[in-house]
Simulated scan of single mutants.
Amino acid sequence: MHRALFTPLTRSVAARVAVRSTMAARPVVFAPRMVRFSSNDAKAPEGEAKPEATEGETTKEESTEQKEVDPAEEFKAQLAKKDKDLADMKNHYARAIADFRNLQESTKKEVQKAKDFALQKFAKDLLESIDNFSLALSAVKEETLATNDEVKNLYEGVSMTQNVFEKTLNRHGIQKIDPMGEPFDPNQHEATFEIPQPDKEPGTVFHVQQPGYTLNSRVLRPAKVGIVKDVEN
């Protein structure tokens, strides 16, 4: 039985060995591979010039030359640009300083102007009190002062109060305009009437009906005056 099984196995192994030996004995044939060359890769025959590059195309040598930039020239261009930017910045800085200083000066003037004329409305209200002092003093006659000591003392007290009041106003920039005998000035005087007087020059103030006042050289109230009229007119 063992012999019967061994015989087919032996035959099978022998058949495999025979096939392998047959394949080893066959000659190996290599098929040549076809290589295709494009027209651009083909070398031009000796003696013939290479085709020139068309417009818009550059050779490798030209592109290399364009890419190569002189570092010194590039640095000079950058330095010139920086110098220009610095000059522009200095110009803007100088203008900004000048504008700021002008703003400071104008603001300072406006603040001083506001301070100078802060009392304008209040000063106008005080002018009526000063006028009342003048009216009270002008109402007293000289004969009464000479004969009545009580009236004289009252007159002197009112006069002293008026002087103190006027000095206080002067310290705050309020000054009195009394143009008696001066030429008429329409900027500071207000003419209420005209009378011809041959012994006086025409256009001269000969009567002050109401004194005027200024606040820091600015007319607060013009003086009401009478002026001499020209006889020829």
Rank of each mutant, 00 (worst) to 15 (best):
G56W: 07
R33L: 06
R171I: 04
V111Y: 07
E68F: 08
A146I: 05
Y213D: 05
K109V: 12
K76H: 08
F122N: 04
A18S: 09
V35N: 10
V231C: 08
K76P: 06
R95T: 13
A123L: 02
V13K: 06
A118S: 04
A49D: 07
G47Q: 03
E190F: 15
Y213K: 06
T7V: 03
Q120S: 12
Q112Y: 05
N132Y: 01
K121L: 12
T161A: 05
P202D: 11
E128K: 05
S134N: 05
A42L: 08
N148V: 02
H189S: 10
F184S: 08
V28M: 05
K141H: 01
K67T: 14
Y93D: 13
R3D: 12
K108N: 15
V35I: 11
D99R: 12
S106R: 15
D83R: 13
D116H: 07
I195V: 14
A24D: 14
V158N: 00
M1H: 02
N170V: 07
K167R: 07
L119T: 03
V29M: 13
A146D: 04
T64G: 06
D70E: 10
E182M: 09
A191V: 14
Q104D: 02
R11L: 15
D230Y: 09
E105V: 05
V208R: 00
H2P: 02
R101K: 12
L86S: 11
E48Y: 08
M180P: 06
Q209L: 15
F100S: 12
K67L: 11
G181D: 00
A53S: 05
N102L: 13
M89C: 06
V140G: 00
S129C: 11
D230G: 10
L86Y: 12
F165K: 03
K124P: 06
T22P: 04
R95Q: 12
M23Q: 10
T64W: 03
P198N: 12
K115A: 12
T192N: 03
L154D: 01
A53I: 03
T168W: 04
K109S: 10
P179N: 05
H172G: 09
D70I: 11
Q209G: 12
N148W: 02
L145W: 00
F193Y: 11
H189Y: 10
K113L: 12
Q197M: 13
M160W: 02
I174K: 05
H2A: 02
V111N: 08
R101D: 10
F184G: 04
V208W: 06
K113N: 04
T54L: 13
K81Y: 10
G56P: 09
K76R: 14
Q197A: 08
V205D: 10
P211F: 10
E61K: 13
D88Y: 01
V28Y: 03
A24Y: 12
R3L: 11
R218E: 15
L154I: 06
F193G: 11
P222V: 05
A72I: 15
P196A: 11
T144W: 00
E52D: 14
L215N: 07
V35A: 06
L126E: 02
A49P: 00
L137F: 02
S106P: 03
P51I: 15
K224P: 15
E74W: 04
P45C: 00
Y93I: 13
G173Y: 04
E73L: 07
M160K: 07
G181W: 01
N153T: 01
Q66A: 14
